[in-house]
Simulated scan of single mutants.
Amino acid sequence: MSSERLCYWLLLLVARFSLSATIAAAGKVSALIVFGDSTVDAGNNNFISTIAKANFPPYGIDFDGGVATGRFSNGRLVTDFVSEALRLPSSVPAYLDRSYTIDQLAMGVSFASGGTGLDHLTAKLTSVIPLSQQLEYFKEYQERLKRAKGESVANKIITEALYIFSIGTNDFILNYLVLPLRPAQYTAPEYVAYLIGHADAAVRGAYDLGARKILFVGLAPFGCVPAARTLNRDEPGECNEEYNQLAIKFNAELQEAISKLNGDLAGAQVVYIDTYNMASGIVANPLDYGFENIEQGCCGTGLIETSVLCAMDQQLTCQDADKYMFFDSVHPSERTYSIVADQILKTALQVFM
């Protein structure tokens, strides 16, 4: 066996051992509870009146049974992969989907809503569920859990659950960079601070309701999503670095806020998830990750289509979404989500194990 081949197998064994150790300790997490936007919406938007939906083909073409669940992807999301690795269900249910029983929701639930943001105005733009309402649903969920399981068991589930917040991109892409209202009120640094204030309040709100193990996902380089590349007037087809700088600024302030939260919230651990560098690594070296296309989405022309626009151009949808970093012009493919989930399991999640 060549030395290169031997090194490959040794690295593979180390990776498997690391993942096995994570899964072996997974019993410490009782459930996965999710707040956020389309990156973690398991289908809540299916049950509200909004144009921001993904419950039709080609979405879900690689989900179990080829079902369009309302996830803005060809398959599963980061939270689904994390849930499965924690020996919880392989997909996280949407809270508003009443086909799920409270026993099923007891192991994990998503309150997320595609199109929402930290800024309440962002949610209003497409009539989706604001973060404040997601926390209200969480309160309702707790009461249902207590009625079904008893207060002691319900409290144990809530305390030992892992909480994920994934939100913030829409505040820039759908709101600040498009509409004139917020830019008239806030400079870019002021708006970042405004959003961080809402992120801080949301974590404190979840803490007051019992959350103790919390992951907060930072912003990815959203200037590199296909739609941003398409609309980049200065350098068409290239990443919009002005947008990426906003993500970097937000992430830096989010990390400072998280540090303060860890000092203020007794018994809690809040962990920052660095998706910016994860995604930047893929953009810089796509072939290392098995991607052939990072500039276009799989659906339609891949340049601007998302949500209903993907459905209008189904005949143009790519044959193998695994070769694409993005499924539509904004949302990652299932394979990208799996790579991010793997990094979370190997790094940030170790804090709770």
Rank of each mutant, 00 (worst) to 15 (best):
A85F: 14
R16F: 06
I304E: 03
A220E: 06
Y59I: 13
Y137S: 12
K213P: 02
S91T: 13
L10W: 07
Q185T: 15
L345Q: 01
V34S: 11
Q315I: 08
N232E: 10
N251G: 11
G205M: 11
G281A: 05
A85N: 14
A341D: 06
N244F: 09
A106V: 00
L121R: 07
E241N: 15
C299W: 02
A341I: 11
L77A: 05
S338F: 03
V217K: 09
P183A: 10
I33W: 06
L309V: 04
C310H: 01
S333M: 12
L209P: 04
L105G: 03
S280H: 01
A52G: 08
G115L: 10
E140S: 14
V270L: 02
A206C: 13
G290R: 13
F111H: 07
G218F: 06
N74S: 09
R5H: 06
S90V: 04
G150T: 03
A348M: 05
I282Y: 00
H331W: 09
F222R: 05
P130E: 11
P221V: 12
A106F: 05
L219N: 05
E295A: 12
D62Y: 04
P286V: 12
M1A: 07
D208S: 11
T50I: 11
E241I: 14
C239V: 06
A15M: 09
F222A: 02
E140N: 14
F138Q: 04
P58S: 07
Y324I: 12
D41H: 12
L349A: 04
L145N: 08
L6G: 00
K346L: 11
V92K: 04
M312R: 09
L303I: 01
L265V: 12
P57T: 10
C239T: 06
L125S: 10
R233T: 14
Q296S: 13
P180E: 10
T50A: 10
A106I: 00
P226T: 08
P130Q: 09
G297L: 07
L209R: 07
A220H: 04
I158Q: 05
S91N: 08
Y272H: 01
S18F: 01
T101C: 06
F250W: 07
G267R: 08
L96D: 07
M107Q: 13
T301R: 15
I164C: 03
A161G: 05
E305V: 01
G263M: 03
K149E: 02
F352M: 05
T301E: 11
L181S: 06
V340G: 00
A94F: 08
R76S: 09
L209E: 10
N175L: 15
